[in-house]
Design a protein around this nucleic acid. Structure first.
Lengths: 368, 368
DNA sequence: CTGTTAGCGCTTTCAT
DNA sequence: ATGAAAGCGCTAACAG
């Protein structure tokens, strides 16, 4: 029974294509892989057969047979932070250009999940992995290096064989921001860090301290608070800062999400940005140009990072031997509307363009 | 030379594990797959060997041998729209719980890229695919159905064998929003749609029109503008609306990004939300509770969608035969601060909690 | 409960 | 330029 169905069930594979094109499977394989050792005429016949049969090569078999998976891993820590989707998109775009694929994994800042992610990468036999999480236990790194899988990190460790590193020039970026604030007359500059257990957060924090020192601006330690690189953390950290008897007149945040959360807290207290407090973010996510006011921030180009990361991995696989290298990305200050001239307390607070700060938001009915 | 290195180069595979554990490869395989037909003692020996050798099964070989890839595809249209990352995360979370993996593909609203994505899915032999893009050409659907790959769509087409559909109960969601505005006294209600070439956008638009009709609220056609489901589009659409001689007093947007963009445009004109115009979004992305003012919106639960989608696919693979089904997700109105009582033109505009609308933002120095 | 073995679909020598 | 055939690492009958 079901004779016809059984006929259709004929397995669709390279052999079937070979049969239809009346060549061997080797020739089909060569054609698919664009080998130049196939007669144009033959190749054409093969392509026709492929098209006619709607044949797609089985990537699993391909990977198994060749040892190369054409898959590149991308490990990120929080897909919910807009910084990363923009990065993922760029990475994917460039990978596709090179005929490679991307396996994205999200650790959610969780070391356990990180292990799972690494295993996934290993099991799928990725040809390289971009680890953009800034946190990774050494033994996991070994899993890759012992298998000769190229890696690229963001601001982590030293390049070595098969390990590349992308470093962000924080000093330059932060200096520009601090200089900008300084030019506007600010001296009471605060900082909302990321979670201090993250290396990346610590690096940004250090860069801030170093910059103040370079500019000879005194740091009031009580102007530094810890956030979590999310809006909630920025909000709460700012709220704590605002509860202090002495407040900073300008705030640099460890990333834009933090800055946006901080602005929310400022508004809730009936204060306004930048009239009462100037705010600078870090990253320049798409969103930042749409906040109210648009956020002044230090742009870190995701396309640049993605491109650099992918190329580092891809070229590691072409080169012999796989050389690790170090690449530098230069952040740039994007001036928008969340920073303004420092206005001494007691002076008439309203600038020409400023609103009636203090009564705009419901929670705190503080007026001037 | 390098004799020791060469020794390490011994291929790492199931056979090696078998050798170390002194069993057959079949037993190793059974142990890995948790078959109950292995003596506990033997299994233990195998596990030890696996651990000692740091062995990870090759997923490509696994997929090839078994015919199941344990991979589920997730096709989305814009990873840059916060709605999707939150969805991706939920989908991934539940997939991991079931021991399955996720292959994410981003079409960027581009039909060409959609083809690429489909091919990737096919080539990787996904066990099922969730298509959450609301646009898909029939012939691409065929590619999956002809291969008996279960699909699940969001608001698209009819369920049939192997095809499930998740429908959002728009009428209920939109009705709640319109009722809310109506209760606040609004009758001049506008709408900013998504790109009208997208089915999902059209559905939302239709739901809006239908809801007004049900509530017997007259629609002013000039109160409807088209956006692009991104902030930029929402901003521009709102700007156009504001240029009209007669303006709506409340706006419903096709998604939150649009609503946020729209609020930006409102602020730029020196107007304020909700005092001058009330705004309601759609989706309830994380961001929406942090905007200024926090956005009233119609929540569409991403975890619900993700869970439903994954289960539909997964069960399709367990069940015999693969049944398609229809699932309904109920949106709910989340009231925040971007909606307020309608205030007739000419009446004193300031509510107790309202700020001095009109001078807060620089571009337009309009004062009351 | 365990081992043997024949594939899965493709790549890649090695011949021709 | 093309074909034959030996794997790649694993699974899944089938035997025992």
């Amino acid at each position: 029974m079901h004779l016809q169905v059984e006929r259709q069930e004929r397995p669709m594979n390279i052999r079937e294509v070979a049969r239809v094109a009346r060549v061997s499977t080797a020739t089909v394989s060569r054609t698919i892989n664009g080998s130049d050792k196939v007669a144009p005429e033959t190749a054409e016949r093969v392509r026709e057969a492929i098209h006619k049969l709607k044949f797609y090569p089985n990537n699993n078999a391909r990977a198994l047979g060749s040892g190369r998976s054409s898959l590149y891993g991308l490990i990120i820590s929080d897909i919910t932070n807009p910084f990363f989707p923009e990065l993922v998109r760029s990475f994917e775009e460039i990978a596709v250009q090179y005929g490679q694929e991307v396996l994205v994994a999200n650790t959610n800042y969780d070391p356990i999940r990180m292990e799972t992610c690494v295993r996934r990468m290993l099991q799928r036999k990725v040809d390289g992995v971009a680890i953009l999480t800034s946190e990774m236990e050494a033994h996991l790194i070994d899993e890759f290096s012992s298998r000769r899988i190229p890696m690229v990190f963001l601001d982590m460790g030293v390049p070595s064989e098969g390990i590349s590193n992308i470093v962000l020039d924080y000093p330059a970026g932060v200096d520009a921001a601090v200089q900008h604030l300084s030019d506007l007359g600010h001296v009471d500059i605060g900082f909302i860090s990321g979670p201090m257990n993250l290396t990346s957060a610590r690096i940004r924090h250090q860069a801030f301290l170093a910059s103040l020192k370079r500019k000879r601006i005194r740091l009031n330690p009580s102007f530094v608070e810890e956030g979590d690189h999310r809006m909630g953390g920025g909000h709460d950290a700012m709220a704590r800062l605002l509860n202090r008897p002495v407040r900073p007149t300008a705030i640099l945040a460890s990333n834009d999400m933090t800055a946006i959360g901080a602005m929310g807290a400022i508004f809730e207290q009936g204060l306004s940005v930048p009239e009462d407090i100037s705010v600078i973010g870090f990253d320049d996510i798409d969103l930042s140009s749409f906040t109210q006011p648009p956020l002044t921030t230090i742009r870190v180009s995701r396309p640049d990072i993605a491109r650099t990361a992918f190329r580092a991995l891809y070229s590691s696989n072409q080169d012999t031997p796989p050389q690790g290298a170090e690449f530098t990305i230069h952040p740039t200050l994007i001036e928008r509307k969340s920073t303004g001239r420092m206005i001494p307390i007691g002076s008439p607070r309203r600038q020409q363009k400023s609103g009636d700060a203090g009564i705009r938001f419901g929670k705190a009915q503080i007026t001037g």
